[in-house]
Design a protein around this nucleic acid. Structure first.
Length: 553
DNA sequence: TAGCCTTTGAAGAGT
DNA sequence: ACTCTTCAAAGGCTA
């Protein structure tokens, strides 16, 4: 990930992270994506948890009042530089940052640990190995503290470096399983230990492993890491393996070090496919693969008993051959994964639905650059995924889930949908609604690329349409609805994920996103909050608006 | 206990 | 080309 790492600490990620830190202490000027947690969460709590469906926007007044997230990047860059410099001196280098940073921001410093010949310093390697057990990190030399290879000990002064939850820098990339972590878990338990035999920092105890190596107690496996350097302590299973053992699902995939690290690091005990053939060099399956055993979808539930029995067997066999491969996570999902714990920690909310709403708002509060990181990460995810599963199609997962309520409703008839539209029609245009996901500075007014964001003349042009937020007139019982803004290509173009840096994505960001249906959020309908959104409002109103209202309606 | 809820984004199917 | 639908994560809640 040269884009993310290169340049050391003062890369994008670092900057953003710094931004967040810098703003942390500021009440009013909190970084939208981060700092406003208190008020934001409180607001959301009251507004969401109560499910009052009172779409009034007062709950977000704070957000509205919040100054644009736009910060002086110069300032932060300086700050970053300073911090980055210090990171190499400060003994506190190995400390867990208080923030859930961007996972991909964690490694830049490793660059400094590469030997002249390009080999990774031993300590750096140890770190990588720790977090990326299967990483093909070239060898040797020394991080500050060989005893502290764990990222958990990385500087907290350099937000760039580490994720508070000791997630892999590419955590999102390695999380194809239930990998949520416990926010409250103190980093202390991750104190590094050196394997007396190898001298290499011992791999964390399963319980210490990143949450992205979820080891369910029952499934605590008996995986012996194929790589010597990551040998678990005796009798200490690192991963669970299904009876079948491992199989590497991606045969002829040529991967570079980073790629392989991504791949291997995503392995999860929950996704161990049957072993039709040999193992991956790592011997660990991709986490995106969900073993049928682990995740069985009653796909044949509709069949008659007779047919069911037969087809069941067939299906099972087929599924064994073709384990469930999860979709690659998109940018927001990656963001969610990372931030969820933080949000949960900051509030008492437990319901994912409410938390997700908060996250959604925060997502929009993120600066373009911040979002760009996630988009880039997601892009890599997809890239990797496509390489790993060349034949996989999103369609493969269709029907894997249970029939959704929406679908049921459709089956029941158009009654519900008609009702929805009816409701929409009666929706006052100026209806006071929920707070905006964000009012300023989100990616919405950013150019296609982070770099462009800073210098592109095109950026201003985009500003207009970019204000268009995904809107969703919050609905209660009904599933979400979308507003189709087919004619708002430019409008949506801005919504295009920043095709950061380089890569295949850069060429393919546009159209699919443009055509994406926009969920209409009530926030968008709030005058004064989204000036640009309001401009778009007529557009929205001109569209067949499908608003789902509370069942009480 | 399966499914809902809730979010955004990506992909595929359908028109 | 555009619209619509599904799924990805997550965990409390509900029927």
């Amino acid at each position: 990930m040269p884009q993310l790492n290169s340049g050391g600490g003062d890369e994008l990620g670092a900057n953003d992270e710094l931004i967040r830190f810098k703003d942390e202490g500021e009440q009013e000027d909190k970084s939208p994506g981060e700092g406003s947690a208190e008020g934001d969460l409180a607001d959301v709590k009251s507004s969401l948890v109560n499910e009052s469906e009172n779409l009034s926007s007062d709950s977000d007044s704070e957000v509205e009042r919040r100054p644009p997230p736009r910060e002086s990047f110069e300032k932060h860059r300086d700050y970053l530089s300073e911090a980055f410099r210090r990171q190499h001196q400060d003994a506190a280098f190995f400390k867990s940052p208080p923030y859930a940073g961007y996972p991909f921001l964690m490694i830049p410093d490793l660059g400094g640990h590469y030997l002249p010949n390009g080999a990774l310093s031993p300590s750096a390697r140890a770190y990588l190995q720790m977090k990326w057990p299967l990483l093909d990190a070239p060898s040797t030399a020394g991080l500050k503290d060989a005893r502290s290879p764990s990222p958990a000990h990385l500087s907290n002064k350099v937000p760039v470096v580490q994720h508070p939850h000791h997630m892999h820098p590419l955590t999102p990339l390695i999380t194809y399983s239930n990998d949520h972590f416990t926010p409250g878990t103190p980093p202390g338990h991750l104190s590094p230990e050196i394997d007396p035999k190898t001298g290499i920092p011992r791999p964390p105890h399963p319980s210490e492993l990143s949450p992205y190596y979820p080891l369910s107690p029952g499934a605590m496996g008996q995986i012996h890491h194929p790589l010597g350097w990551l040998m678990p302590q005796q009798g200490q299973p690192m991963y669970s393996i299904p009876p079948g053992g491992f199989r590497h699902p991606y045969p002829a995939l040529a991967m570079n070090a980073s790629m392989s690290s991504l791949v291997s690091s995503r392995f999860s005990p929950h996704m161990v496919p049957p072993p039709p053939h040999g193992l991956h060099t790592s011997g660990i399956p991709h986490p995106a693969i969900v073993s049928p055993v682990v995740k069985q979808e009653p796909s044949s539930g509709n069949l008659s008993p007779n047919l069911n029995q037969k087809s069941n067997v067939v299906i099972k066999k087929e599924e064994e051959k073709k384990p469930h491969i999860k979709k690659p996570l998109n940018a927001f999902m990656l963001y969610m994964k990372e931030m969820r714990a933080k949000v949960v920690a900051e509030c008492t909310l437990k319901e994912s639905a409410a938390i997700n709403q908060i996250l959604g708002r925060r997502w929009h509060s993120l600066s373009r650059e911040e979002q760009a990181k996630y988009y880039e990460l997601a892009r890599k995810e997809r890239q990797l995924h496509s390489q790993l599963y060349p034949t996989w199609s999103a369609r493969d997962n269709y029907g894997k889930r249970k029939k959704r309520k929406r679908e049921k409703q459709i089956q029941e008839g158009d009654h519900a949908s008609k009702h929805k539209k009816l409701c929409v029609q009666h929706l006052p245009a100026d209806k006071s609604c929920d707070s905006p996901a964000s009012s300023h500075g989100s990616m919405l007014d950013s150019p296609a690329t982070p770099s462009a964001a800073l210098a592109s003349p095109a950026a201003p042009a985009a500003t207009h349409s970019e204000q268009a937020q995904p809107l969703s007139l919050t609905t209660k019982p009904e599933s979400r609805s979308h507003i189709s803004l087919s004619h708002s290509a430019a409008f949506l173009a801005s919504k295009s994920p920043p095709s950061t840096l380089s890569g295949p994505m850069s060429t393919s960001v546009g159209s699919p996103l443009i055509s994406r249906p926009i969920p209409l959020t009530s926030s968008m309908l709030s005058p004064g909050i989204y000036p640009s959104a309001l401009q778009a409002l007529p557009l929205l109103q001109a569209q067949p608006l499908s608003l789902v209202t509370k069942s009480s309606d």
